[in-house]
């Protein structure tokens, strides 16, 4: 469904490549986590799939198309087969939830009756039944993300790209979102999700592709998030905490009234 063949992307001449000879093959119906530190190339990976950028070298195939050589006027056709979800939801604040989802269909010229039928169905599926008339600001973060997901899948795309969809959400809400993405995946949609959330990755046990400095360093079928450095360096037991009072005393400070 998505195939990267020795793809390199260099933004500025002479700079370190954002992606370096990346070869990844995502099958139809797969659920893939894209992990790695900030700047490892996850976002570049997604924007190459969307053809917001072209690779400097190599080929990117999405749904059977050579995306790098796709002429500009055919890009919309490609994007109609892709759904995208972002960390910051990107809902239009002046439209209701229903209008936000309908917008995605209106702008690709879908007839009105089709929109009227599909939108409530999709809202129902993402768990926003009856909330179509709310404005985005009247929804919780999780609900906003559900609305954004509804917008992404309302046109039944073959591939759903998610760029840290749980990045702004608390763990419980994230869990709900992950269940939703999993359900969408089970209907046959290929899901590629870039994330930093190790708990989710470890729990889902799906394929994990880890990028580091633009290179694929790991590609495991049922992987975990991978090793993480400890937050504080391990310096051994602190004498102060172990035996309070045994070191030098801090000088007593007194405050006098003026």
């Amino acid at each position: 469904m998505i195939r990267f063949e020795n793809v390199s992307k260099v933004y500025a001449r002479g700079a370190r490549p954002a992606l370096d000879q990346v070869s990844v093959d995502v099958e139809r119906g797969e659920f893939v986590f894209l992990v790695g530190a900030s700047g490892s190339g996850k976002s570049t990976f997604l924007s190459l799939v969307l053809r917001e950028q072209r690779p400097t070298r190599g080929h990117v195939y999405v749904a059977g198309r050579d995306v790098a050589n796709l002429s500009a006027w055919r890009v919309p056709t490609l994007r109609r087969q892709l759904g995208v979800v972002f960390q910051d939801f990107r809902l239009l604040q002046n439209k209701t939830v229903h209008e936000n989802v309908a917008f995605a269909l209106q702008v690709i010229g879908k007839p009105r009756h089709a929109i009227r039928d599909t939108v409530p169905e999709v809202l129902d599926m993402v768990g926003l039944a009856g909330k179509g008339k709310r404005m985005p600001t009247e929804l919780s973060g999780g609900e906003q993300q559900r609305a954004a997901i509804a917008r992404a899948i309302v046109n039944r795309p073959q591939i759903l790209l998610a760029d840290e969809p749980t990045g702004n959400l608390d763990p419980t809400t994230s869990l709900g979102i992950m269940r939703l993405l999993d359900r969408i995946n089970r209907t046959g949609t290929t899901v590629v999700m870039a994330t930093h959330d190790d708990e989710i990755v470890n729990e889902m046990r799906r394929r994990v592709v880890e990028l580091s400095d633009g290179v694929v360093v790991r590609d495991e079928a049922r992987g975990g998030y991978g090793e993480r450095e400890a937050i504080l360096p391990d310096v051994g037991a602190s004498p102060v905490l172990d035996s309070p009072g045994s070191g030098t005393r801090a000088p007593v400070q007194t405050v006098r009234g003026v």
């Binding site: 919309p76 490609l78 994007r79 109609r80 239009l92 917008f103 702008v107 690709i108 917008r151």
Partner: peptide, 17 residues
């Protein structure tokens, strides 16, 4: 800008945008 950004992502044609 936000509208056009969404329009681009969901595959609205250039003319439509």
């Amino acid at each position: 800008r936000k509208e056009t950004e969404i329009m681009r992502l969901v595959g609205a044609s250039n003319l439509f945008i």
